[in-house]
Design a protein around this nucleic acid. Structure first.
Lengths: 151, 151
DNA sequence: TGAAACCCGGACGGATTTGGTCGTATACTG
DNA sequence: CAGTATACGACCAAATCCGTCCGGGTTTCA
């Protein structure tokens, strides 16, 4: 259904939280989990994954926790989602190098791959900082021609 | 992981097939299924759903089958996906009217809802006809600022 | 030195979603 | 009436996803 997993949601929420509290040197997974009612152990694993991907820095021990590895402006939503949910493709049969095992003439994939690239571009253009500054900005323009399929 | 279901894929493939063969008055589900190695009964149900949504017209009996209800130019990928997979939302906790039961201050949703709208706009701008004309057009430009989150 | 607070990460079970099949009823054609 | 096709509900198997449990390390601090 073209939606993120809860893990990715949790990850974005957590990073947003960190971006909003730059004064705290390190925030524990439990603190964030409690703030939002997220299962603590689950969030812990998500943050571990984000650390492995280089988006966060962790610090063990008392008063330890996590902190953004880079400026919030330089962490994109794409990176977060990609780190947690893995590489995403609109087309369901895109695995490995083979395009389509069962359906050889699956020509639908090629145009959709470009849609996929567009979506990825949108997500890449959104930083954690953008998520943290959440007044009520103008509605995004969706009418512009985003993809040129017909050349 | 932000991908379509196989059902939606199958639906798009089938509609593309119909768009490519306008000379045939009605194509049976089995014919399309055999052409692509798709399970026939599964595809049948998908086409039934698309018929219920008004994208296809069905005709029972010998030499029956399915045909596009409108011009291929006026059926968008969005409609197909929406008909099969239901309304899609990037955010995982968007159900019903309640925004977020467990996490009241789930402010991440609002920016992502706009991303969602952008993606929907992209899919709305792509017609079945576009899918059928599948030469190798220029790569879509992904560098343009697609969403303005910060106002 | 040792306990508390924290990160790390594998293993596991339950819930949900998906993908696909089966069987039957119904509609149309010739 | 026989054959072909859609319509539709019930059902099952497989794959994810969500969340928990548990046994490790590591750092801080009294």
């Amino acid at each position: 259904m073209l939606k993120l997993t809860k893990k990715a949601d949790y990850g974005l929420i957590a990073l947003k939280y960190l971006a909003e509290h730059p004064e705290i040197a390190a925030v524990s997974a439990k603190d964030i989990a409690d703030s939002y009612g997220i299962p603590a152990q689950l969030l812990a694993k998500i943050l571990q994954q984000l650390t492995k991907s280089g988006l966060l820095k962790s610090h063990a021990g008392m008063n330890g926790g996590y902190a953004l590895a880079r400026d919030a402006r330089e962490i994109s939503a794409y990176e977060v989602i990609h780190s947690i949910d893995g590489p995403f493709f609109i087309t369901s049969c895109t695995k490995g190098s083979k395009s389509c095992e069962l359906t050889p003439n699956c020509t639908i994939k090629e145009p959709l791959a470009r849609v996929n690239e567009t979506i990825a571009g949108v997500l890449r253009s959104i930083s954690i900082q953008d998520l943290a500054e959440h007044e009520h900005p103008a509605v995004a323009s969706t009418a512009s021609p985003l993809v040129s399929l017909t050349h």
